[in-house]
Amino acid sequence: MNLEVLAGCLASGACVVTQISSGLIVGMLLFLVASGLSLIFGVLGIVNFAHGAFYMAGAYFALLAYEQTASFTAALAFGALAAGVIGVAFERFIMSRVYGHDVLMQLLVCYAAILIFDDLVKILFGADYKLMGMPDAFATAPIQIAGGFVPSYYIFMLVMALAAGLGLWLGINKTRIGKIIRALAINPQMVGALGINTKLLYAGVFGLGCVLAGLAGALAAPVRSLTPGMGLSVLIESFIVTVIGGMGSIPGALVAALLIGLTRSFGAIGFPLFVDGLMFGLMALVLVVRPSGLLGAKAS
């Protein structure tokens, strides 16, 4: 424990700005992964324990595209799309076979998928750390806010993540296809009876969730090192976010992701070893007081 250092940081504007900005981007990455997870749970009613693998896929395919084209826009698009395509294939060929089985079957299938994906990444890209490096467009001097330095890429990440989140929320709540997806979550038989291809829609929703995870991975690639096991820690944290925010709630995921991001960045100064403990303690507390999460629908 190092609470004096934490108090010292809180007293200095520069330190607060730096920590808030790093907390925000951690939170934003978690929000993207967790909103995909939450979307899949809300509509399909399954917990995608392999979601971290799509985050990893997004990062590695973004790196591949960046090395080939040297264009960061292409890297982002390719990373997100590749994760989405793999996601749809995974849903169609493997996951859809265990719908309706108990959650343990789904867990086991996802665990097998994680093992396979991690090894495939090792075979395709190598087992050692990979770095993407900052794209040229963002290789500028950091922006100074209240004495603290914030890299311009952080601002870009923040905007991208918020835009994706807003787009998702508008898409689900304001469009016709969003209405169908909401109906699918409540009564799939009825939606099917109305002549809508529910299998296609399930695959689409699963793919969309994976696109979000892939986008998060691609956005993280310039600021994180890429390793074959990178999906796991993100997976565990995005579970915490989903549970605290409420399973199936996108705004809940945003609030919880920011909470966890800031807890991490300030906790790393005050009590670096106990950050995980604090997060899981928070998760247990939320589950006890309000099992459906902060913004989740009340469980019947």
């Binding site: 959650v103 549970v243 070893l273 403990g277 604090l278 899981f280 998760m283 099992p291």
Partner: peptide, 20 residues
């Protein structure tokens, strides 16, 4: 699933205590 998550949370809490 909420039972599963809370047992996971307690286990990881204990893991953190061991680490700290």
């Amino acid at each position: 699933i909420y039972f599963s998550f809370i047992t996971l949370a307690f286990q990881m809490f204990i893991h953190s205590i061991i680490l700290t």
